[in-house]
Design a binder for these strands. Structure first.
Lengths: 112, 112
DNA sequence: CGTGTAAGGAATTCTGACACG
DNA sequence: CGTGTAAGGAATTCTGACACG
């Protein structure tokens, strides 16, 4: 089970459904997103996505990754640059983590 | 959008979420199910599952297929033979279709 | 019947580079 | 900066067959 560890020592189990399983090859991912394999690999190089790797080294994406890629594609169309998208994505997950941590702290305090 | 067509002329849209998308290669499917690729291909030969094919001919499975394979694996362990499993699976989907058709008819009649 | 395996070939994917702009 | 492409190689998958039982 994957966990997010807060610096306060509190850990949070994250749901790992079909959506988050990295099982899709780059070919299918390309079909699903409409992006070329070249584009997908480049966005990885620019740290916008992080697929898993098989033992042999082939990339594996999740449906969540596919969604993120479509989102990235839209932002690219809007003239946004990869580093801007990266910042935005990181900001998003940062917000999400803070929200989760906040709720956790709140719940924890209530138990005392 | 995929549809099921009843002989009564009524058609039913089927939800096509992540679970039903055939996007997983046989290697990952093997890992997810614990079955060998040989076993998976054999169960296909015996009509227990029907993966999609890429243009090049490689098999693509859905998470639903993965679940079905695990189910098949359990039945095989119980000494069931492939033709028995096939019958059971067909009976299941038959029941499911009848239930759906029944509900559809009921809903349709209420509108008159 | 169900499954392992070696065999030869085709499809898929990988990396690093050159190109254009 | 973002993306296409040709290049050479490695990883993945395919089929038909032989084997065992």
């Amino acid at each position: 089970m994957p966990h997010i560890n807060g610096k306060d020592g509190v850990s949070l189990a994250v749901s790992t459904s079909y959506k988050n399983k990295k099982v899709i090859g780059i070919g299918i991912t390309s079909e699903l997103t409409g992006l070329s394999e070249r584009q997908i690999r480049y966005y990885e190089e620019r740290k916008l996505i992080q697929p898993d790797r098989s033992k042999g080294g082939t990339r594996k994406y999740s449906f969540e990754d596919v969604e993120r890629l479509v989102d990235i594609a839209n932002k690219m169309e809007d003239g946004m640059q990869t580093f801007e998208i990266r910042k935005e994505e990181m900001k998003q997950s940062d917000v999400r983590n803070k929200m989760l941590r906040g709720q956790l702290n709140a719940a924890f305090k209530m138990r005392k």
